[in-house]
Design a protein around this nucleic acid. Structure first.
Lengths: 149, 149
DNA sequence: TATAAGGCTGTACCTTGGTACAGGGTCAAG
DNA sequence: CTTGACCCTGTACCAAGGTACAGCCTTATA
């Protein structure tokens, strides 16, 4: 039986051996055929599928999203539109995170500006602001709040 | 012995009871005195400290960062400058995340634009792009890459 | 033929920031 | 005196995405 061993696939794709077995357990890649010793023998399609996973991960898709995309691909009834919807949902998600991070950066920049050389930590305005919480707009947009929804 | 019970502190700060005990285990708040039944009796400083933690968390500080800030605050030798450095490191971190997310959004928007109504999932350009990985600039800036550094 | 490199399964462990009990003791009201 | 609301400790568990062994088998190379 021909094909690549798990080590060869790992080197070719840059995905660790343990991770490949993990993806198989998680149904992200189908169980490959085995040779007579029980070794996994991967076909070229498996390598393409692993590339797909790597690329989707790089775009911020979760493994659950990726599993969904892979099943849609095989499902002849699924349409391009359903896939676009998943992508648009991810874009919306990214935009929420972008605005939260932007607010956080602004609040932090303001606070960092209040630090004065020569002052002790006990006199630090930044720490005082954290106690007082006078940066409420940043807090109302924190990632935690968003993730709770 | 006077002070507030853990339930009163929880209601006043909006931080759950289990979370307060968790913060105590993690050395984010000092162990409060106990009454003769072993109940935690919190003093007003504890409430202020919990507010500090809540505000710092809202700005994206990890609990480890917060612990560091709290220790610096007590340490008379610590300077405002050291605190500013922690804040600047967090700002730099946020900026890296912002640019990675921006690239991801752009790559996803491009891909979503290739989806055409009426096509089946098998013909979807977005999925094909994920297989081919022809959006390399997004990948080279993925969050995973950054977190590995 | 010895030995290293690589493969197998199964299970446990890691991070972060909590959350959920179980099985008890305590306190205030009726 | 009982009931319900609190509080205590200790332990286990959750998501996500892996990582690390232990203990064993197979394959390639010198």
């Amino acid at each position: 039986m021909e094909g690549m061993t798990i080590g060869q696939v790992s080197r070719q794709t840059g995905v660790g051996i343990e991770t490949l077995r993990f993806y198989e357990r998680e149904s992200l890649i189908p169980a490959p055929p085995r040779n007579r010793s029980g070794y996994r023998m991967y076909q070229p399609e498996a390598v393409a599928r692993i590339a797909f996973i790597r690329h989707a991960k790089a775009l911020g898709f979760s493994l659950a999203d990726i599993r969904e995309l892979l099943f849609l691909r095989v499902d002849a009834a699924a349409s391009c539109l359903e896939i676009k919807e998943i992508a648009l949902a991810r874009i919306a998600d990214i935009e929420v995170r972008l605005s939260a991070l932007t607010r956080m950066r602004e609040a932090l920049q303001d606070l960092a500006g209040t630090c004065r050389a020569g002052r002790s930590a006990g006199e630090c305005q930044l720490l005082d602001s954290l106690l007082a919480g006078n940066f409420v707009d940043a807090e109302s947009l924190s990632l935690d709040r968003i993730e709770e929804q």
